[in-house]
Amino acid sequence: MKNAVVILGGAFNPVHTQHIALLCLAKQELEVNGQWNIIGGYLAVATDGYVCHKLHSRNERTIKLKHRLALAHEAIKDIPWLINSPFQEEMLKKHDGSAFSLGQRLKSLLKNDNIQILILVGGDRMIKKGVPIWRKSSNKTPIIRVGIERTMNNNDNNLFELWQKDLNENLIPNPEEFILLNTPIRSVSSSLVRVYLNQWFNTKEDSQKQFEIENDLININSFLHSSVINYIKKYQDDLYIDI
Rank of each mutant, 00 (worst) to 15 (best):
Q88C: 11
L92T: 11
L110I: 00
I39C: 03
P80R: 10
I117P: 03
S108E: 05
N59E: 08
R58F: 13
L110M: 11
V45H: 00
I63L: 12
A70E: 06
S108A: 14
K54R: 12
V51A: 10
W36E: 04
G49S: 09
S98R: 01
I76Y: 08
Q35T: 12
L55D: 04
K107T: 03
K77E: 03
N112D: 06
E60Y: 12
N112E: 02
S101E: 14
I115Q: 03
H53C: 11
D48M: 02
C52N: 01
S101A: 13
I115C: 12
L82Y: 05
D48T: 01
D48K: 00
G97E: 14
T47E: 13
K54G: 06
Q35S: 15
A46W: 07
D113K: 02
L43M: 14
H95L: 09
K54H: 05
R58E: 07
T62S: 00
G97V: 14
S98Q: 00
A75Y: 04
K93A: 04
A46C: 05
H56F: 14
K64T: 02
E74N: 11
H56D: 05
M91K: 03
K94Y: 11
R68E: 10
T62W: 06
K94V: 09
I38R: 06
A70C: 03
L71Y: 01
G49K: 12
S57K: 13
Y42P: 06
G97R: 14
I117C: 06
L106V: 05
A99D: 02
